[in-house]
Design a protein around this nucleic acid. Structure first.
Length: 799
RNA sequence: GCCCGGGUGGCGGAACUCGGUCAGACGCGAUCGGCUUAAACCCGAUUGCCCGAGAGGGCGUGUGGGUUCGAAUCCCACCCCGGGCACCA
């Protein structure tokens, strides 16, 4: 072999790592190395790995290797998110049974991960669709049920007509199904929910305990949407009904001139069942979320012919039904303060209602602060002050109290689809909802041939499976035929990795105590809300049940940017998707991995350009050739040759780039520089220095190109690079005894001089004054000031 | 509308934490040369823009201002691109 041949090198090392179980870690913790848990988000099994996966695992693997070589015991596992709608849709499209297509996809992922040389502990591998796994998903569901955190209720839910299933709030983007883009409809259905809202405050507050990118934190904060305000009671005297509303502006209470209920509010038709109201309500219910949510839409509504009492003024104000009020938020009713709320203002204008200013601010409608007017005894106060006093007053009168409201809704988890984890509950005519006893888990997903979505769960047709005896009374009962949202499966997989073969429990608490939390989590920003919020909720709920001992699953989060190709988003339909397999085949895994890390900071979006791949391959090839041509020497490097200095510079640069974050692009560039320097200086440098430089280049490139790194290091030293500690730079070789002194006139460079790094400020100035070019540049001008920056420059201010 | 990012050569990007070496590391692309019957590969040189034969000069980090001996870096205003939230009371 006389040229760089990844087809030989890569399988060679992969075999060694597999045969020797190099990356496996034991729960017995053989020594006192500190643990480090690095995890990339598990792949979703519809189809083959794409370039985003390559990036994800290239990043994670670099982190894993770096920490191993810093003496840590690194857990780096792998599994598959195998249930769910996209996998099922993929199966329908390819005409395969989801089980078969999922298994094909898993095989493809497993194959690629090995070909990429990712350092995974394969003994911990699993798929979330395996009964050994989802048995515990069901077990956890039952624990949540016991604590009242999983419950059934009838509610207006989001329904995707194309996928024929309900969706979680989080899976509806701009009124459309996140998966297929279809406009979602509202349906009134009884469904399973997780009570994530109970954790809203903790999910918000605990964000200070984790190191996550600020924009992800903001996204979660926005999503939870905590608002502080007051609940104020408006009484309908005529019917003797109290209507509480939530408001963030109790200070504007005196300006409430009307009162509005959401169309879905159960009292609307009781208050008025005229044809006009019926029509209005029906139209609102049939509107898509997108149409209804359009901010620019003309406000509409219908008077209900009743009044409520404004608790501040005692006035009777008219009641309306209007579709700009949402049932899900607050109490499904609002007080209308047209002077100080833009929506209420528009509504009042459309309906011809009174607009009464109660804060002296700008032009109406205005939401600014100011002095209270038309507000009884709160007159003249600043509105912020009035806010507090009005709430206190309401409280003392029993007409209201401080309150907090959230945008976050409970997590709707049931799906009317086949390919998912069955919900372990039975419906008994006598006993109602009955949980399946733990010792009967898992409730296995039956094999169903006709699994196409049809609006009710395909499981309902598996009669043998559906009909069971009630665990409580032994009478006839039916299984719940819905399956769980895939996000349930992925809300706890990182816990199972710690103890994946446990068949007594989902995990051993003591084992979890040692591995958790995940020290570094890596994945796409598209999961900033859904998965990351759900997983945090699960961990908090499980901590409350004393099943584990952390409050947060992911101590640090890194979100990688998307890969585009030649500036365009990649997609199968455009036919511009980059298949990582093709590039691994052509250039080797090391090249593909390095290239994807080299094209830019991994957190940014980056553009894949075919032409660029060759450059990285050339670099790796040059490094290999440098190793094969290195002179022999048994000496240790000594002295301070230029090459030796460059080598230590590279160690320092790569180490700092990896420490300070994920600056892999500049770390790889530094190894390129070192390699270029080896070529420039290898003929003049001592052989020991050349060997050391090449070995170090191999050692430094190892986290990114593990096969080549191991090969080059072995060629130079006969040793295994992953068993070596991460190199440390020699400070003496980082320092230079000579600096380049810059001479400036008025901030513009006129000369560069060599100066001893030990020179004092006066000496530097003296030296600079001696510059020929300075003299030429001065040309009779007068030096009015001199600025000396030690170790860098001398600037003469000249008039 | 509100909240985050970000605007640097033909391109991807460095430097931008601490203002300080004519900004442009590293790589791609391009041009020229070498090797070759030839091409590819490989090797070497050049490559921000403008003027100039050259020496050299001028201009340059989205735009306009400011602070400073000195600004891509700090401050103010504005423009553009990307992302998040948005009839949430």
């Amino acid at each position: 072999m006389d040229r760089y041949d990844p087809k030989t090198i890569e399988p060679k090392w992969q075999r060694i790592w597999a045969d020797e179980h190099t990356w496996e870690v034991s729960n017995d913790f053989p020594d006192d190395r500190p643990k480090y848990y690095v995890l990339e988000m598990l792949p979703y099994t519809s189809g083959e790995p794409h370039i985003g996966h390559l990036k994800n695992y290239a990043v994670g693997d670099a982190v894993a290797h770096f920490h191993r070589r810093h003496g840590m015991y690194v857990l780096h596992p792998m599994g598959y998110d195998a249930f769910g709608l996209p996998a099922e849709n993929h199966a329908i499209k390819t005409g395969q049974h989801p089980r078969a297509s999922t298994d094909d996809s898993i095989a493809a992922f497993r194959e690629q991960m090995r070909a990429w040389g990712i350092s995974i502990d394969w003994t911990r591998e699993f798929g979330t669709h395996q009964p050994e796994y989802y048995r515990w998903t069901q077990w956890l569901f039952l624990r949540l049920y016991e604590r009242g955190l999983a419950y059934r209720k009838e509610a207006a839910v989001k329904w995707c007509p194309k996928d024929a299933t309900v969706l979680a709030n989080e899976q509806v983007i701009d009124g459309r199904c996140e998966r297929c883009g279809t406009l979602v409809e509202a349906r009134q259905l009884e469904q399973w929910f997780f009570k994530i809202t109970e954790y809203a405050d903790r999910l918000l507050d605990d964000m200070t305990r984790i190191e996550w990118p600020p924009h992800v934190v903001t996204m979660q904060e926005n999503w939870i949407g905590r608002s502080e305000g007051a609940e104020v009671v408006f009484r309908c005297e005529e019917l003797g009904i109290d209507y509480p509303v939530f408001t963030t502006r109790p200070d504007t209470l005196f300006g409430a001139t009307f009162f509005v209920l959401a169309p879905e509010h159960p009292d609307v038709l009781r208050l008025n069942d005229s044809q006009q109201v019926h029509e209005y309500v029906n139209r609102a219910l049939n509107e898509s979320a997108e149409e209804r949510g359009d901010e620019h839409k003309q406000k509409t509504g219908v008077a209900l012919g009743h009044t409520v009492t404004n608790p501040a003024t005692g006035e009777q104000i008219p009641m309306y039904v209007a579709d700009y009020v949402l049932l899900e938020y607050g109490t499904g009713a609002v007080m209308g303060v047209p002077a100080h709320d833009t929506r209420d203002f528009e509504f009042a204008e459309a309906m011809g209602l009174e607009i009464r200013r109660v804060i002296d601010c700008g032009e109406l409608p205005c939401t600014e602060d100011g002095t209270m007017v038309n507000s009884g005894r709160f007159e003249g106060l600043h509105n912020r002050e009035a806010y507090e006093q009005i709430v206190d007053w309401l409280d003392s009168e029993g007409k209201g109290k401080r309150a907090v409201s959230y945008r976050l809704r409970d997590w709707l988890l049931s799906r009317q689809r086949y390919w998912g984890c069955p919900i372990p509950m039975v419906h008994c005519e006598t006993d109602g909802l009955v949980p399946v006893p733990d010792d009967q888990l898992p409730v296995e997903l039956p094999h169903v041939e006709d699994y196409a979505p049809k609006g009710k769960s395909p499981l309902a047709s598996a009669e043998d499976w559906v009909n069971v005896t009630c665990p409580k009374c032994g009478g006839p009962a039916r299984r719940d035929t819905d399956t769980m949202d895939t996000f349930v499966d992925s809300s706890w997989y990182f816990l199972r990795y710690c103890d994946p073969r446990n068949d007594e429990a989902p995990w051993d608490r003591e084992v979890l105590k040692r591995w958790m939390p995940v020290d570094q989590y890596i994945g796409g920003v598209e999961h900033a809300i859904l998965h990351l919020l759900y997983a945090r909720f699960f961990v908090k709920a499980l901590a409350d049940m004393e099943l584990l001992d952390v409050q947060e699953p992911f101590a640090r989060l890194f979100t990688q940017g998307m890969i585009t190709r030649d500036g365009a988003k990649m997609s199968k339909s455009k036919g511009n998707a980059v298949s990582p397999g093709d590039y691994v085949e052509r250039f080797g895994a090391d090249t593909a991995r390095c290239y994807i890390l080299f094209i830019g900071p991994p957190s940014y979006d980056a553009d894949w350009q075919d032409a660029g791949v060759g450059g990285v391959h050339r670099f790796l090839s040059r490094l290999w050739i440098a190793a094969s041509e290195a002179p022999s020497s048994d000496d240790e490097p000594s002295g301070s040759s230029g090459l030796l200095r460059k080598t230590h510079w590279a160690i320092d640069k790569v180490t700092r780039d990896m420490r300070t974050g994920f600056a892999f692009n500049t770390a790889i560039a530094a190894v390129m520089e070192l390699t270029n320097e080896i070529y420039r200086q290898r003929d003049e440098s001592p052989p020991a220095d050349v060997r050391f430089a090449v070995a170090t280049a191999g050692s430094l490139i190892f986290p990114f190109a593990p096969h080549l790194g191991a090969e080059v290091y072995e060629m130079m030293t006969g040793r295994r690079v992953w068993e070596e500690p991460w190199p440390e730079p020699d400070p003496a070789l980082l320092a230079h005894d000579e600096i380049q002194l810059v001479v400036q006139v008025n901030g513009k460079l006129v000369d560069r001089l060599a100066a001893p790094s030990s020179a004092s400020q006066d000496e530097l100035e003296e030296l600079a004054r001696g510059s020929d070019k300075l003299a030429a540049r001065l040309d009779g001008g007068e030096i009015v000031k001199t600025v000396v920056v030690p170790g860098k420059l001398v600037n003469f201010v000249v008039r």
